[in-house]
Amino acid sequence: MRTTIFAFALLMLGLGNAALAKTSAEDIEQAAHRFLEAFADEQSERGYTVTFETGTIDSRLALASCQAPLAVEFTGDPWRSAQPSLQVACEGERPWRMFVTASVAIEGPALVAARPLARGERVTLDMLTTQSVQVNASRRGVMRDAGKVQGMEVRRPVNSGSVITPDLLAAPDAVERGDHVIIVARRGAFAVTSRGKALASASVGEQVLVENLRSARTVRANVVGPGRVEIPM
C-alpha cells in the first residue's frame, strides 16, 4: 500500500512539473541563433558572408512550454535592413509568439561606379566595377547583375566608388514624343497591327497616348518595346 501511494505521489509530482514547464529566454535565444546560422550557411553557398548577433532577452521571461520545435522567421527583408526583427513562435497546444531583435550584416559583391556618372548618361559595362560591400546597409538595395543595368539611364550624378542602387537608374524611353510606332491590338492569340504616332515619351511598362494614323483616333496604349505599343481589343 505504501509503495502504491509513493508511486502515485511521484506520478503527480511529475505531472505537476510538466504543467509548470516553461519556454525560457535561453530556449528562444537558441532558436533564433540556429535560424540565423542556417541563413548564414545558405547565403555562404551563394557567395555572401553573413555575420549576426541576436538581441538580449530578459532572463526572467518564461512562456508556455512548446511541444513542437520553435518556428522562427524574419518579419522584414534582411537584404534591406541591418537590424531585421525575428518572430519566434510556438505552434503547439498553447500557441504564442514574440519578436526578437537582431543585427545582421551581409557582405558580398555589388556594382559600384568605376568613374563619376552624369545625369542622363546611358550605362555601359566600362562604367561599372564589382566590389564587396555590406549589401544590406541601405534600404534602397543594391544592383548585382551588370546585364540588367546596362543601357539604363542615370537619374542623378553618381560619385566614383558609390554603390549602384535601383533608385539611381531609370529605364530609358522606349518611345519619344512624335515617334512613329507600331500599334498592336491584341485579343488572346489574335492581333491586328496599325501605325501610330506617340503623343508623349514613355519607357517599357508605362502607358502613353498614341494617335492612330489611319483613324486619327487617340488611344491609351502600353509600351511593350522600342517603337511598339499594345492595346487590348
Results as ranks from 00 to 15, higher is better:
S65Q: 03
I106H: 09
V224N: 05
A202T: 09
S194Q: 11
A198T: 05
A171R: 06
M143C: 07
L70M: 15
V154I: 14
E230V: 06
S132M: 09
D145G: 08
F52H: 12
G47H: 06
R139V: 02
S203F: 11
L117I: 10
A82W: 07
P232H: 10
L86H: 04
T101A: 06
A64K: 11
A18C: 00
G92C: 13
N17K: 14
T129R: 10
S132N: 11
A102Q: 03
G92Y: 11
A221D: 12
A64L: 11
E45A: 04
C66W: 05
Q67I: 00
E230C: 03
A185M: 14
G147Y: 09
E26D: 12
W96Q: 00
R228Q: 12
S103C: 08
M127Q: 08
A113C: 13
S160A: 15
D145K: 10
N159L: 11
A40C: 01
V133R: 15
A9K: 15
Q43T: 09
P116W: 00
V181E: 03
R139S: 09
I231C: 00
E206Q: 11
G161V: 00
C90R: 02
V175I: 15
T129H: 07
T23H: 04
S162Q: 07
L209G: 02
E93V: 10
V149T: 01
V192S: 06
A82N: 09
L168S: 05
L125R: 11
T54K: 02
V208I: 14
V112W: 02
S194G: 13
P95D: 11
G141F: 13
V123F: 03
A221K: 15
R144P: 14
P116A: 01
R94D: 15
I183D: 06
F8R: 04
A21E: 03
V204N: 03
L11K: 08
A64Q: 12
G196W: 12
T49I: 15
V219A: 03
Q67C: 01
I5S: 06
F190I: 14
V88Q: 03
P78Q: 06
R119M: 14
G55E: 12
L128V: 07
G178I: 12
I28G: 00
V50W: 10
Q207T: 10
I28F: 01
V223F: 13
G108K: 08
R144A: 08
A113P: 14
L20R: 05
N136T: 10
A200W: 10
V135D: 04
A64I: 06
V208Y: 12
R186K: 14
